[in-house]
């Protein structure tokens, strides 16, 4: 088996005093779609930022295509980022440009292609996400699901080797959600890329991904293929898959004794 495209080795990360990632090791094999799951605020998005080089790990290594992201200078990092695509939670489209110009943006910035060719490429990317007809609209005129599809077209404009998705399913209606899910899978296969999805939408993810990691309190607590995950007896995964309010992930934020707090009048 060839070397995985992305490998995290014993990665640790903290914002100031607050430890976010304690000891994470995982890998994304080439050509696969991998999901990272966990509750809100468990450090999933931080992982994407580490892989994209927007943050640097405190300990351990983040390897992308054999390069240690934490050690790259700005130029090499930008060279690497040209081969990565990241879809932000709410699309992050440039609001002062049309849909067409948004998708053309990376092409115009990084290539010297003639306008006719850029025009064709943009229309192809937009066609792939089903929004060729929306090329002249402004981001403000799009629904949430459409905006995310446009952002997806922009993300794949330069045919990246790695696609990263930050909560791609959040706030979408069931139809848009299914569309985005299918697009993630289809584009990954069509581009021969590898994809990393950070999400907490377990049902959608089980249908489209090859492998899932569960993160809790800065560690990988469970992993497996969708079939393994469905049939696991792991209490954390069980709680997550069945959306139970209480379990290994407690319902209550850590607090002192309840009775004492009520009688004593202080939290």
């Amino acid at each position: 088996m060839s070397e995985p495209l992305v490998r995290l080795e014993n990665v640790r990360f903290a914002y100031g005093e607050r430890m976010i990632l304690r000891d994470i090791s995982l890998s994304i094999p080439r050509g696969q779609v991998v999901a990272i799951m966990g509750g809100s605020g468990c450090g999933k998005t931080t992982m994407l930022r580490l892989i994209g080089g927007q943050e640097r790990a405190v300990g351990g290594r983040v390897l992308v295509d054999g390069q240690d992201v934490g050690k790259l200078d700005r130029e090499d990092l930008y060279a690497l980022r040209r081969r990565m695509g990241m879809l932000f939670q709410f699309g992050a489209l440039f609001t002062d440009m049309t849909v067409f110009d948004n998708v053309a943006f990376p092409l115009r910035e990084h290539t010297d292609l003639p306008p006719e060719l850029i025009n064709d490429l943009v229309l192809m990317k937009l066609h792939a996400v089903g929004l060729r007809g929306a090329a002249q609209l402004r981001p403000g005129e799009l629904s949430g699901g459409m905006a995310r599809r446009v952002a997806l077209a922009r993300t794949i404009a330069l045919d990246p080797m790695l696609l990263m998705y930050d909560e791609p399913f959040t706030g979408l209606d069931p139809i848009s959600l299914g569309v985005i899910g299918q697009l993630i899978r289809r584009l990954n296969n069509a581009l021969g890329a590898s994809s990393l999805i950070v999400t907490h939408d377990i049902q959608e993810s089980l249908q489209i991904v090859d492998y899932i990691y569960f993160i809790s309190e800065g560690r990988v607590v469970a992993e497996g293929t969708p079939d393994e995950i469905r049939n696991t007896s792991d209490p954390f995964v069980h709680q997550f898959v069945h959306a139970e309010a209480d379990g290994p992930v407690p319902f209550h934020y850590p607090a002192g004794d309840y009775a004492t707090a009520l009688v004593g009048g202080a939290g």
Partner: peptide
């Protein structure tokens, strides 16, 4: 400021555009 709020600056940076 609004470009920062809507992550446009971050997105640009991730597209290797300063």
């Amino acid at each position: 400021g609004l470009m920062k709020v809507t992550e446009q600056l971050k997105a640009m940076d991730m597209m290797a555009v300063n």
